[in-house]
């Protein structure tokens, strides 16, 4: 028993170590101007304003594309699951396969399709679109399971009332699935924020303030990578960015748990 409990604690050490060293090394660098000015001297000095703006822009594009696409796909899957089971199996297989593809491959895909073929260049738009396709399978999976539960619960009742399937989908399943949609959106958002590899060759490295979504922009995670790998003496600001990123993700995560609990309670008694 002693061996297994020491293995248990050993397993927790890396996580604890990582989070303490990130916060301890990162947070002391935090100043007000971190949020007010853009990085200078390749990121060794200055703040993070342009980085934060780029990150927000990339996230916005990602969610604007992926949320409607994911919820429509999940609703379609609910339909297929009822009337064309074979087709829904095929869809779910392709989602499983898609979610197993490494993010760096999505980066290559985005580089060819958006940067080169669609001629969007290394831009925030390319990065956002790439991430949208990357988080799609996760979001569809999350949504589809809760849509299916709702469908099972109300299918008989609505059919007995002579309600068409389209009305059922749009006016009953979708509104009742809103909590799940929020949950899936937040989940996708955390995955998109944590992603680096897919952005390296799609949204580029530029740390200047983006003027439009067609400008190159550097996300927080790419900033950490650049400072740590390519800028001697950039460690301190890398840790600052990491601490901020970790802080945001922890906040979102706690919010998920909190809202997840309350929204689940609301589900069904809307």
């Amino acid at each position: 028993m002693r061996i297994s409990s020491s293995i248990l604690y050993l397993g927790l050490i890396p996580g604890l170590w990582l989070i303490t060293c990130t916060l301890i090394l990162g947070l002391p660098q935090l100043r007000l101007e971190t949020f007010l000015i853009s990085p200078s001297d390749a990121g060794r000095a200055g703040g993070l304003l342009s980085i934060i703006i780029s990150t927000l822009l990339i996230l916005t594009i990602t969610l604007v594309i992926s949320v409607p696409l994911a919820s429509a796909t999940a609703l379609a899957m609910t339909y297929f699951r009822r009337y064309f089971l074979k087709l829904s199996r095929l869809l779910s297989l392709s989602l499983d396969v898609l979610s197993a593809i490494p993010s760096v491959i999505f980066g290559l895909f985005g580089n060819v399709l958006f940067v080169e073929k669609l001629n969007l260049g290394h831009s925030i738009l390319s990065g956002g679109l790439t991430l949208a396709f990357m988080i799609l399978p996760t979001m569809v999976r999350t949504l589809e399971s809760s849509y299916h539960e709702i469908e099972k619960g109300y299918a008989k009742t609505t059919e007995a009332l002579g309600i068409n399937f389209s009305t059922f989908i749009y006016q009953i399943v979708f509104p009742l699935g809103l909590p799940a949609l929020i949950f899936a959106t937040i989940l996708g958002m955390t995955r998109a924020m944590a992603e680096t590899a897919a952005l390296l060759f799609t949204s580029g490295y530029s740390d200047r303030m983006p003027e439009s979504v067609l400008d190159s922009g550097r996300s927080m995670s790419v900033h950490i990578y650049e400072l740590a790998m390519n800028v001697p003496g950039g460690d301190k600001n890398a840790y600052l960015t990491a601490a901020l990123l970790v802080f945001i993700l922890l906040t979102i995560n706690s919010a998920i748990t909190y809202f997840g609990y309350h929204l689940n309670k609301r589900l069904g008694i809307l």
Partner: peptide, 11 residues
Amino acid sequence: SGFPSVVFGLW
């Protein structure tokens, strides 16, 4: 399980 890999790399 969902932490940014780049932070693991930095660490």
